[in-house]
Design a protein around this nucleic acid. Structure first.
Length: 107
DNA sequence: ACCGTGACGTGTC
DNA sequence: TGACACGCCACGG
């Protein structure tokens, strides 16, 4: 990823997340060399339905769908994740360690 | 230019 | 992964 804007890199990484897999803000931030994972969240803030990026596959370190409310109220993230094979309970990803996908692990 | 705020992370209890 | 505090960066008002 050799993009001037970190946002572009984030979009790329999130778009590379396989179905049935999730990743954490910290993993993306660390992989891109960002200091604060918050910046990743800010990037996501612009993705909310505007981009073709599966932001619903991005959760926090606890496996919680932090931005579930910021997504599609009628089409919750957890429903999409479950549809892809990810078990979600109360906005929390079950078997998080199993479905966790590390961008650095692929590259 | 200042301040508040936000889809977070890590350390500690 | 219960809760609390601190750090961190970007953007809008």
């Amino acid at each position: 990823m050799a993009a001037g804007n970190v946002f572009e890199d984030i979009y790329e990484v999130v778009c590379l997340i396989p179905e049935g897999r999730v990743t954490s803000y910290g993993a993306i931030a660390r992989y891109l060399g960002i200091k604060s994972a918050r910046m990743v969240g800010w990037a996501m803030n612009g993705l909310t339905g505007e981009k073709n990026v599966p932001a619903h596959r991005v959760v926090n370190s606890a496996g919680i769908l932090s931005g579930a409310s910021a997504f599609h109220p009628e089409n919750p993230m957890h429903k999409r994740l479950e549809a892809e094979g990810v078990t979600v309970k109360d906005n929390k990803v079950q078997n998080f360690k199993t479905v966790f996908w590390d961008p650095a692990a692929e590259l």
